[in-house]
Write a protein that binds this DNA or RNA. Structure first.
Length: 650
RNA sequence: GCCGAUGUAGCUCAGAGGUAGAGCACUUCCUUGGUAAGGAAGAGGUCACGGGUUCAAUUCCCGUCAUCGGCUCCA
């Protein structure tokens, strides 16, 4: 055999082996071992993902991916989407297909069902059909197609969505994948065959706009997930059930943190006494931190005149789609519920002439704002129409922007750390690269603002991602994102650089040279909104709030009513130390009282009975941990003093 | 706002064309028990709201409102 008939394949561990030209990926895997080959789903050649059946004609670096890798899973789900499409096509006539990608957990396919409807009972039918087709062990065939032929195929089939997609592709880069009786436009790669898909669940059905365009046609999006065996599916469903138990809407109800009332209105939360304690502890904490950082608390009213928002530009952007103006007996007089605090703070800035010597000026307010969010968007406490921001505006010079920005980053990191919030991601939200019409201001100030942020995060060496099109309409942002129990991403802390607002409000300060200069505004909110923050905090800690935030910190449980007066003495003692204590003197058994206290997630239980009375001690039990034994009150205090953020003056 | 699902006691949920049921919680009584549910009795619902069909609707149909899952939006 000639040397030219051989190719060198480099493996991830650096090993190089020589193979006959034209060998396929799967043959290489089999060459390693049959067992290894059986577990591989897809490969990459020089980092480009390919089907296992791909034949190799030149030297390459190869990697294999199985179910244990993200790439393997996403290929598995991608092929499952194709299989689901095949099943749908056999169940529904007249069906047209949009896109069907894999997602973080499973896959979906957007379909136009024409006159058909996809009903609840169709889920099981579809699952069965998918499994039936899977068993046929159809191979996934890749085929390169000319643009002309591709268009002809879908034109004949009458699938205008695919035609849309093909029109955006270049001739020579179009491929079809075929399995069984189904052909799809797809760049792949795919599983070797359908039989690997052993378990499938149709999760839910939703509407989704074609190409994400609200004005476009709405398709039916069918979500599913599949696995190589049934056990993984039941595992997945179990995990989903567990995750639902963390949902702040569920815990919020159980622990009586907040509620909603139809009579009050959609998206307008009512904070119950327990939730209010959590909320106010967080506010106190933040107030102290901010005072350390040189913020000045201010207070502004809940409404502002229309003029204020015309000036800020918010009226133009949101006037029609927000709560409508409040009228007065005077004609032409209109006020808006404030949707943000910045315009009010600008007016506070303007209340007297400012000098460079007094900058940066940091005005802070726990400001309640009202935004008419779309009804379909409302969600527990994470998306509401009335909420309180831990807002502040830093008015500073151009030179101060970066250092102020970094100080805010530090503050947010400190806050997150204090609450053991570690699984957040940081996102730099920049302007949409294409569509700049959504934004106000000049390219120049945008570039400066975007650079300010990028420089700050680079200097802080924070891991971040860049999201284009996520900026506010007046400026770029640095957002701290946290996921909820069901994996949805929410923005909590945010820092924004704004060159527009100071200009619009004609803010200025006197410089060293006695000239007038426009300041820059940094908007920032470490929690974001108290509502959303408490929601995510609740999910994060499963309702087991840290001691300093717990609505009830200690409950005193008496063994029987004989010890009520001793319980009462302990109760008074602890209440006098400003601890949030309750006592349970019901004529119930101690195990019942403990159970109830555990369900209420109260951090500490004090148990009082004969032994404690005699020895003038108490017994302590910690939530989820159990009995800590007998001790004196002094011992108790020293234990409590070790809890984070707790000050006890005894 | 759009697509789909759901709405029965404070909570979790059964139920059925003939005017409602369980468990927990609540009230009272008995029990005085040592680390996750002691016992009994009682009270509690215009079956989301408004129409329609029917001898009869909480149940079937339509509309509204709210909630849930997505899409779009998010100052």
């Amino acid at each position: 055999m000639n040397k030219e008939d051989k190719i060198n394949i480099t493996f991830p561990d650096g090993k190089v082996l020589s193979y006959n030209i034209g060998i396929s990926c799967i043959e290489i895997a089999e060459n390693i071992s049959q067992g290894f080959a059986r577990n591989q789903l897809v490969a990459s050649l020089n980092d480009k993902l390919v089907d296992l059946s791909t034949k190799i004609n030149k030297d390459n670096r190869i990697m294999f991916y199985g179910w244990d890798s993200e790439i393997g899973k996403s290929t598995f789900w991608h092929s499952s989407a194709h299989l689901m499409a095949e099943a749908l096509e056999s169940l529904f006539s007249d069906i047209k297909f949009g896109i069907g990608p894999p997602i973080e957990n499973g896959f979906y396919y957007d379909v136009d069902l024409g006159k058909n409807e996809f009903k609840e009972e169709d889920k099981v039918k579809l699952e069965n059909k998918i499994l039936e087709l899977a068993k046929q062990k159809s191979e996934f065939f890749r085929e390169e197609v000319s643009k002309k032929n591709a268009l002809k195929y879908f034109n004949d089939k009458g699938d205008n969505y695919k035609i849309d997609l093909i029109n955006e592709l270049n001739d020579g880069e179009i491929t079809f994948y075929k399995q069984g009786n189904f052909i799809d436009l797809c760049k792949g790669p795919h599983l070797p065959n359908t039989k690997l898909i052993k378990s499938v669940k149709i999760l839910n059905v939703a509407g989704a706009y074609w190409r994400g365009d609200e004005k476009g046609k709405q398709l039916t999006r069918i979500y599913g997930i599949s696995f190589p065996n049934n056990k993984e599916l039941s595992n997945f469903l179990l995990l989903q059930e567990e995750a639902k138990k963390r949902d702040h809407r569920k815990i919020g109800k159980e622990l009586e943190l907040f509620t909603f009332s139809e009579k009050v209105g959609q998206g307008l939360p009512l904070w119950l006494p327990n939730g209010t304690i959590v909320r106010e502890c967080l506010i106190d904490f933040m107030k102290k931190e901010q005072i350390k950082e040189g913020y000045l608390p201010v207070v502004s009213p809940h409404i502002g005149s229309k003029e204020l928002y015309v000036t800020s530009g918010h009226y133009d952007k949101y006037g029609e789609s927000s709560f409508q103006p409040i009228k007065t007996p005077n004609e032409n007089e209109e006020f808006f519920l404030k949707p943000m605090n910045c315009p009010h703070h600008c007016e506070i800035y303007k209340s007297k002439p400012r000098s460079y010597k007094n900058l940066p000026l940091r005005l802070a307010e726990f400001g309640s704002v009202y935004r008419y969010e779309q009804s379909g968007e409302l969600h527990g406490l994470t998306r509401v129409r009335g909420f309180t921001q831990d807002d502040a505006h830093i008015f500073c010079t151009n030179e101060q922007v970066k250092s102020e920005f970094i100080k805010v980053i530090d503050l947010i990191l400190k806050v997150f750390d204090s609450l053991s919030f570690d699984d957040y991601s940081v996102q730099v939200s920049l302007r949409d690269k294409e569509d700049k019409s959504k934004y106000i201001g000049t390219d120049k100030t945008w570039e400066i603002a975007e650079n300010d942020i990028l420089e700050a995060v680079k200097e802080k060496k924070i891991k971040y991602s860049i999201e284009y099109g996520e900026a506010a309409f007046y400026g770029p942002k640095l957002d701290f994102m946290v996921k909820d129990s069901l994996n949805r991403k929410w923005q909590l802390g945010t820092i924004q650089v704004d060159y527009q607002l100071p200009e619009r409000f004609q803010l200025d300060y006197i410089t060293e040279n006695n000239t007038k200069q426009t300041p820059v505004v940094i908007h920032r909110a470490p929690f974001g909104s108290l509502e959303r923050f408490v929601a995510l905090l609740t999910e994060h800690c499963y309702g087991n709030f840290p001691f300093w935030l717990a609505p009830i910190q200690i409950t005193i449980l008496s063994i029987s009513d004989k010890f009520n007066s001793y319980s009462n003495k302990i109760f008074k003692f602890l209440s006098n130390l400003n601890l949030r204590v309750i006592k349970d003197i019901r004529s119930e058994k101690i195990s019942k009282k403990i159970r109830d206290a555990e369900l209420k997630k109260i951090p500490y239980m004090i148990i009082i009975g004969e032994n404690e009375l005699k020895s003038n001690k108490i017994s302590l039990r910690k939530h989820t941990e159990g009995d800590l034994g007998k001790m004196t009150l002094d011992d108790l205090i020293s234990i409590l003093k070790k809890e984070k953020n707790v000050i006890i003056n005894n």
